[in-house]
Simulated scan of single mutants.
Amino acid sequence: MREEIINRVANSKLKNFDLEDYYVAGPRTEIDIAQWLMEGLVLVESRFRQSVKTTDFTAYENHHVALKCSTDAIVPPWAWMLLQSQLTDVAKTVVVGSLEDLETVLYRNVIADIDLSNFKDLPVIVKGCSKKPVPVAAYLMITEKLQRIASSVMYGEACSSVPVYKRPR
């Protein structure tokens, strides 16, 4: 006589949450402004403005753009503002920082609008592995939001989850 195999995970109240499902589509581009600085270090206003003016920013249409300076140059705020003014009607998103900073901003915007009411008073596992770049900061953001509503928050997979938070009784 064969014993029936019962999938206790499928029959439990356990809910899965996958941050990868909230990945914002679109190409990511990093623009290093050191190319427009004298010797990569000194921002000369007239030269910088000319470089920005002759750059074809339409190449970044519908991109999520991270602006950075790979050198130790001191870049005044107006320079970043000038770049933003060129990208406003072109790029979907513009941030100053790395590609990871860009992902963090994209996830922050998405997570802020997520309705988690279907996780109320339930144990939740936040999926750990993903094929898309999910910044660590996104895990922090979703943990903060989930622990206000879920009975518990875990990380990983149902077969090997790590407890993160359990609501006090």
Rank of each mutant, 00 (worst) to 15 (best):
R2M: 09
R2V: 03
E4R: 11
I5L: 13
I5P: 10
I5Q: 07
I6P: 02
N7Q: 12
V9H: 10
A10E: 07
N11L: 15
K13D: 15
L14Q: 05
K15D: 03
K15I: 09
K15F: 09
N16S: 13
N16F: 12
F17H: 06
F17S: 10
L19E: 00
E20H: 01
E20N: 11
E20T: 06
Y23E: 01
Y23S: 00
Y23T: 01
V24M: 02
A25F: 13
G26V: 00
P27H: 12
P27R: 09
P27L: 14
R28P: 02
E30D: 03
D32A: 04
D32S: 05
A34C: 14
A34P: 07
Q35D: 13
L37I: 01
L37K: 01
G40D: 13
L41I: 13
L41Y: 12
V42D: 14
V42A: 10
L43R: 08
R47V: 15
R49E: 15
Q50S: 15
K53E: 15
T55R: 09
D56T: 05
D56L: 06
F57T: 05
F57M: 05
Y60L: 15
E61N: 10
E61F: 00
N62D: 12
H64Q: 14
V65R: 04
K68P: 02
C69D: 05
C69S: 04
S70N: 13
T71N: 02
D72Y: 03
A73P: 06
I74D: 08
P77N: 14
W78E: 15
W78A: 12
L83P: 06
L83E: 13
L83A: 14
Q84K: 05
S85L: 04
S85I: 04
L87K: 07
T88R: 14
D89K: 09
V90Y: 01
K92E: 09
T93H: 12
V96W: 02
V96P: 00
V96G: 02
S98V: 00
S98Q: 01
L99C: 05
L99A: 11
L106R: 01
Y107W: 02
N109M: 11
N109Y: 08
N109H: 10
V110F: 02
V110L: 03
I111Q: 07
A112I: 00
I114N: 04
S117I: 12
S117W: 07
N118Q: 11
K120N: 13
L122W: 01
L122H: 01
P123F: 07
P123V: 14
V126C: 05
K127W: 02
C129Y: 08
K131S: 15
K131V: 11
P133T: 00
V134A: 03
P135F: 07
P135M: 07
P135Q: 11
P135A: 06
V136E: 15
V136C: 08
A137G: 10
L140Y: 10
M141R: 03
T143G: 08
E144K: 11
L146K: 03
L146M: 11
R148L: 15
R148M: 15
R148W: 11
I149R: 08
A150L: 06
S151Q: 05
S152E: 11
G156C: 07
E157I: 10
E157P: 00
A158W: 01
C159T: 12
S160R: 12
S161K: 12
S161Q: 08
S161G: 10
P163A: 10
V164M: 14
Y165R: 03
Y165H: 09
Y165L: 03
P168G: 12
R169N: 13
